[in-house]
Computed example of a mutant assay.
Amino acid sequence: MGKKKVMSLFVVVLSMAMILGACGGSDSEGEANGSPSELSLLTGGTGGTYFPLGGELANIIQDETDIESANAQSSGASVENMQILQDGDADVAFTQTDIAAYATNGELMFEDGKVDNIQAIGTLYPETIQIVTLEESGIASVDELKGKKVSVGAPGSGTYANAEQVLAAHDITMDDIDAQHLAFDESTEGIQDGTIDAAFITSGTPTGAVEGLSAQKQVTILPIEQDKIDKLIEEHPYYAEDTVKSGTYGLESDVKTVAVLAMLVARSDLDEDYVYQVTKAIFDNSDKITHAKGEFITADSALEGVGIDLHPGAKKYFDEKGVE
């Protein structure tokens, strides 16, 4: 075979290889460029608010974007979600605003290593600090938790940090209670069975696990007094005053407490247009959310209390909406 024929054949083969590579490599290229065809959305435990709400958001994202599929995944919630995103094993996640701040600043449970690859999509709704007990327990105030068996969440979790801070505002330490480290479902089961006296649950109201308990027993939510609320907000600015409304869990009157905000964050290496699509899908279609927390999810309030940098894709959306 002559040199010219060999060279011509080489050019043809090379061209075909380039064409095939371009056609066949689109999925992997999308992954590399931060546009995964299957979006993974980390939520929380099945007894909380993140999981059912996350399922609805995943359906909206799948219906309203070019993303082939979006899957809501149960997880250990805020702290674990930040660690999973840091490892690159998911794309978007629910978290609390305080936990996102701890993660990006390398504070508290993230002292051994900050999370440097997350940016905000937007805040969603208040995550209420609910101190749950039964009316029959006779416990009527936070001060009366001393010496009691109280579930405070897993050490290093967002709920644990909230419990520690609320107790500290009342001059109570973890050593002053018999601290139990249970998930929400386990906490309400323990209260119903009488194996624990009370539980801290940081979640949007109504919380499924507490609703289940209230269907069996008369639930009490312990109030936080105004001076303690003021102290908490002064020392930890990511807290906001909140109220558990009468009628929730069968309560006969409003209960004053505090809340952090639930938010969505994304890996910072996701493409701008990809995150723009996700952000637009959620906030332009929040009226389709049937969960009770859907009423709080609006573009107008989504930048309140964010506390960390916005993802460029989310910023593009909110700039278009005129939200600062």
Rank of each mutant, 00 (worst) to 15 (best):
I196C: 10
A169Q: 08
Q218E: 15
F200E: 09
N162D: 13
V150Y: 10
P237Q: 08
V219S: 10
T220L: 05
A199G: 03
V166Y: 07
G194N: 15
A179D: 09
E234C: 04
G153Y: 06
I224M: 03
I191Y: 10
Q226C: 02
I201S: 11
K148C: 10
P237Y: 11
I196S: 09
A140P: 03
A154R: 10
T195R: 14
E241R: 15
A240H: 14
V166G: 00
Y238Q: 12
P223V: 04
A168N: 15
E241C: 08
V166N: 00
H236Y: 15
T173I: 01
G194C: 07
S246Q: 11
I233E: 13
L134C: 09
F200Y: 12
F184G: 06
E189S: 12
Q226A: 15
T202V: 06
K148A: 13
A161L: 05
V219Q: 13
V210Q: 08
D175V: 07
D193H: 08
P237I: 07
A198N: 14
K149H: 14
D197Y: 08
G147M: 10
Q226L: 05
E189Q: 13
S246E: 14
D185N: 11
T159D: 03
P223Y: 09
D185G: 09
D178H: 09
S203C: 03
G156Y: 13
E136W: 04
I224P: 00
A161F: 04
V210T: 13
D176P: 01
D230R: 07
T173A: 10
S203W: 04
E144D: 15
G190W: 09
A179G: 02
V150T: 05
L232N: 11
L222F: 01
E235R: 09
Y239H: 03
G208Y: 08
A161D: 12
D242S: 13
D242F: 02
D227H: 12
D171I: 01
Q180L: 05
K245Y: 10
M174N: 15
P206W: 03
A163V: 03
E136V: 07
Q218M: 05
H181E: 12
V142L: 03
A168Y: 01
G147L: 00
D178M: 07
D176V: 01
D193L: 06
I172D: 06
D193I: 00
S157D: 11
F184M: 04
D227T: 15
I224H: 09
S151V: 05
D185H: 07
L145C: 02
G156I: 06
T205E: 12
I229Y: 10
A168L: 01
K228Y: 09
A240I: 14
E164R: 06
Q192D: 13
D242L: 02
Q216H: 04
S151A: 14
E186L: 13
D242H: 13
H181L: 04
G147V: 10
G156V: 08
Q192V: 05
E186C: 08
T202R: 01
I196K: 12
I233N: 12
E135L: 06
D171R: 03
H170Y: 15
P206S: 11
T188P: 00
G138Y: 06
T220P: 00
I191K: 07
I139V: 04
T173N: 12
D178N: 15
